[in-house]
Amino acid sequence: MKARYCFETEEFEALTGREPGGAAGKSALLRLNTQGLVVPLARRSGFWLIVPPEHISKGAPPVAWWLHDYLSRKEVTYHVGLLSAATAHGSSHFAVMETQIFLPLPRRELQVAPFRLRFFVKQGIADAPTVTLRTEKSKVVVSSVATTLLDLIRHAPTVGGIERANLILQDLGEKLANEDIALSLAAAADIAAAQRFGYLLEHAAYKKHAQRVAYWLNEKRVQRTRLDVSGTSSKGDVSERWKVLINTDLASVA
């Protein structure tokens, strides 16, 4: 039986026989909150998180236990992405102290006890390839390996630079599949990011995967782009195949 750690105020009132919207339900929830047994998920949201006794000292159970239950009720679609997805897929680099999540619309960061949820907007999120991973108590929707790598490239300044994205690509490259690459490129529809992706795959000696990116780019209007979009330098070699200016040292992050 699947465990549930999230509930709405209305559910609590119905299950405990209290009047909907009445003072008794609110008072009971406040008492439980004072005891550390439940915490609100965002102010005035009407969502509550159950805190098992063994996690009271921390203030909340692990995010993976309740994230899907919470977001699947609040959002049309979501998926964990960027560094959080890379970790879920087995990357050993750059453990992040927040859970990074893509949504179709903007949303403020959410702090639940020591855990921070940071949200990013993704257009066409419903088309992005994902996988559903089982967790200790629940499940979570995570961007596919190819989508994760492509998103890391697209959001490189946010995650610490293209050098970090490159290291994670080396971690996860063996898990790539050409079909996933094709679907991820089509969903993102980002030509410049695809150029950088192809260059990094070729640089890491994933020639067959690089060729799949080249095939996708074949009929696109490709213009020269910088590998490091946050850098202002115009110096460096140019990959003529990918039309990418190599304006950073990929070995500068270890």
Score class of each variant (00 low, 15 high):
Cys6Lys: 01
Phe7Leu: 05
Phe7Asp: 05
Phe7Pro: 00
Thr9Arg: 15
Glu13Ile: 03
Leu15Ile: 11
Gly17His: 03
Gly21Asp: 04
Leu29Asn: 01
Gln35Thr: 02
Pro40Trp: 07
Pro40Tyr: 06
Ile50Lys: 14
Gly59Phe: 01
Pro61Ala: 14
Val76Ile: 11
Val80Cys: 05
Leu83Arg: 02
Ala86Val: 03
His89Leu: 10
Thr99Phe: 15
Gln100Ile: 01
Pro106Asp: 10
Pro106Leu: 04
Ala113Trp: 01
Pro114Lys: 08
Phe115Trp: 07
Phe115Gly: 09
Gln123Val: 05
Gln123Ile: 02
Gln123Thr: 10
Gly124Asp: 09
Ile125Arg: 02
Ala126Thr: 12
Ala128Tyr: 00
Leu133Gln: 11
Leu133Phe: 00
Val140Gly: 03
Val145Gly: 04
Asp151Ile: 03
Leu152Val: 07
His155Cys: 08
Ala156Ser: 15
Ala156His: 09
Val159Trp: 00
Gly160Ile: 01
Ala165His: 04
Gln170Asn: 12
Ala177Glu: 14
Phe197Val: 00
Lys208Asn: 13
Lys208Glu: 14
His209Phe: 11
Val213Gln: 07
Ala214Thr: 03
Leu217Gln: 03
Glu219Leu: 08
Lys220Tyr: 02
Lys220Pro: 02
Ser230Val: 06
Ser230Pro: 02
Gly231Gln: 12
Thr232Arg: 15
Ser234Trp: 15
Lys235His: 08
Ser239His: 10
Glu240Gln: 14
Val244Ala: 05
Asp249Cys: 07
Ala251Trp: 14
